[in-house]
């Protein structure tokens, strides 16, 4: 087992001095020209057919052939982004990006535990851009031995597995793993000392908490569930959010008014999709200052997030074209562009 999986903290203080990444940031500046702007997304929307959309994307340098499915195209784009980051950063610096790859590890853990439970393998459900090889996670789940996993995964993996095998409650299994994922991301994010990443993890955890609160309130979940699901973060008081969730949606809106997420209420009232869009747009607002930063690793991280955001918009448009959804339905889900 690779030693680094056992490290709870992968970053040290001297990893990312400000003077580094001059060349990488300049390369990213040039690369940002290939990101789809709001205008380009509008042009993509204006394409008559799905095939025209694909042609538009191919003209912008996406995917090698027109025979790919949307998911394959998006996967290729994600792989290209990570290949670019690997070409710009050395192995040690690449650990900075683990923050974006932890979610994949925890997703794979969920899949592995559930596969073991149902004793059936499902094709194409694992993701391969995590920090831990899929085979390692799979073997841990099959052997019910999680010590090869990093410390931040070990406990939740055992707990989720036990809950699933004892109660068959896959939702609770998901809640346990999702919470551990957010906790790990939050902890690593704060440890980086990077303002962009600290803002990103804060928003990610707060958005997850708000999402849980809304859903739990509608599903009338008990306090045990809430305490198990919410993640502590600086901008949200879990105790106050639990109390608000138990009092109803209006109490949640009232509580949000007292936080920096006051404007989320409108989006939540509109629809879950509108809230997702609000979260992504807020994240874009957070990373936009990096367009004017000539040094440090932050512009690289911003590019990764911007690319993910772009892929979400492209996925929405392609799904809309494939399923003949009305244009206004697609438009209301589109994210703001970074460029």
């Amino acid at each position: 087992m690779d030693k680094e999986f056992l490290n709870d903290t992968l970053l040290d203080d001297e990893l990312l001095p400000d003077e580094l990444f001059t060349s990488a940031v300049a390369q990213i500046r040039a690369k940002e020209n290939t990101l789809l702007s709001d205008q380009a997304l509008n042009n993509l929307m204006a394409s008559e057919t799905y095939e025209e959309c694909i042609q538009f994307l191919l003209d912008r340098g996406w995917g090698p052939t027109e025979h790919n499915t949307p998911e394959e195209l998006l996967t290729m784009e994600r792989e290209k982004t990570w290949a670019l980051m690997r070409s710009l950063c050395n192995d040690k610096q690449m650990h900075f990006f683990d923050i974006f790859r932890y979610a994949t590890d925890f997703h794979n853990l969920k899949v592995a535990i559930k596969e073991t439970y149902v004793q059936k393998q499902t094709p194409n459900v694992y993701k391969y851009d995590g920090t831990i090889p899929v085979e390692v996670i799979r073997k841990c789940a099959v052997d019910n031995e999680y010590s090869p996993l990093p410390i931040y995964m070990m406990k939740c993996a055992q707990e989720a597995r036990d809950v699933l095998f004892q109660t068959g409650d896959s939702q609770l299994c998901d809640v346990i793993i999702d919470r551990a994922a957010l906790q790990a991301i939050y902890k690593l994010g704060k440890e980086t000392g990077n303002d962009l990443i600290k803002g990103y993890v804060e928003l990610k955890c707060a958005a997850a908490d708000i999402n849980i609160a809304i859903r739990a309130c509608k599903a009338n979940k008990d306090i045990d569930f809430l305490q198990r699901a919410f993640v502590e973060c600086d901008s949200i008081s879990v105790q106050r959010l639990i109390a608000a969730t138990r009092n109803g949606l209006d109490s949640i809106y009232e509580y949000l008014e007292s936080t920096t997420y006051a404007d989320a209420s409108e989006a939540i009232k509109e629809s879950p999709a509108a809230f997702d869009r609000w979260c992504d747009n807020r994240m874009i607002k957070l990373i936009k200052p990096q367009k004017y930063n000539a040094f440090t690793i932050s512009p690289l991280a911003a590019y990764v997030l911007a690319k993910e955001n772009e892929m979400k918009s492209v996925r929405i448009i392609l799904s809309g074209k494939l399923n003949n959804l009305p244009e206004e339905k697609v438009r209301e889900r589109l994210r703001e562009s970074y460029v």
Partner: peptide
């Protein structure tokens, strides 16, 4: 040197 690093990064792309 600093400017050269940035220049090389741009030329690598364009």
């Amino acid at each position: 040197g600093v400017a050269g690093e940035a220049a090389a990064g741009v030329v690598a792309e364009d």
